[in-house]
């Protein structure tokens, strides 16, 4: 029965931009399709619910060796996760993550943004990074690096108005992603500069 089925190995959590995935190495049984089930345990379960574990239904009897646990790692406490192999009625022992995972350990990448000048208007469009994110957008007139201005926005995938620009001047913009729930920010995106339309334009 169970003794034939080894526990999954190399169990680890990949977490980027607040999306958390549990991965493990496949259990190979010749000619058989091994399935896996995943459970999680937060600090609350350890300390107040007799160390109980909660199954993740999307990853019950899955043939994949990856499970999206983002929806369940949804508080700023240490979590543990475990996975076992299942073949027919046989169950392997549980393989459990080494140590604890806290979502503050996620790696944050700089946001992708597009900076535009539309006449005298400085605009930015930010790519969506998920519901946990807001963006700190810094902008300044080139040459006046000491007078940086900041705008905080959650607006994604649409053109956000930053400010109006002096005619003909060049403005630079960079942004970082911020996650309030873990109070952490990504590094800044590369700076992008655009030039405002000069006054010798057709509007005279």
């Amino acid at each position: 029965g169970d003794a034939l089925l080894p526990a999954p190995q190399s169990i680890s959590i990949l977490s980027t931009n607040m999306k958390h995935f549990l991965t493990w190495s496949p259990v190979i049984i010749q000619g058989a399709t091994v399935r896996y089930s995943v459970e999680f345990q937060g600090e609350y379960e350890r300390e107040y619910a007799n160390g109980s574990w909660i199954p993740i239904s999307e990853c019950s009897l899955t043939t994949a060796t990856l499970c999206n646990v983002t929806q369940d790692i949804s508080a700023s406490v240490p979590y543990r996760l475990r996975v076992r192999a299942e073949l027919g009625s046989a169950r392997s022992p549980w393989g459990t993550t080494e140590g604890f995972f806290t979502r503050a350990m996620t790696s944050l990448t700089p946001p992708q943004l597009r900076v535009l000048a539309d006449g005298h208007h400085l605009l930015v469009e930010l790519a969506d990074m998920g519901p946990s994110f807001q963006f700190h957008v810094l902008y300044w007139k080139k040459g006046q690096e000491s007078r940086v201005q900041q705008k905080v926005t959650r607006e994604v995938s649409s053109v956000v108005h930053l400010d109006t620009m002096e005619a003909g001047a060049e403005y630079c913009v960079k942004a970082q992603a911020h996650v309030e729930a873990i109070n952490r920010s990504s590094s800044f995106s590369p700076t992008q500069c655009v030039r405002a339309q000069g006054d010798t334009s057709l509007w005279l």
């Binding site: 937060g42 600090e43 609350y44 508080a75």
Partner: peptide, 10 residues
């Protein structure tokens, strides 16, 4: 409920 409970604990 687990998500809320862990948020409350924190």
């Amino acid at each position: 409920i687990s998500s809320i409970a862990n948020s409350f604990l924190s």
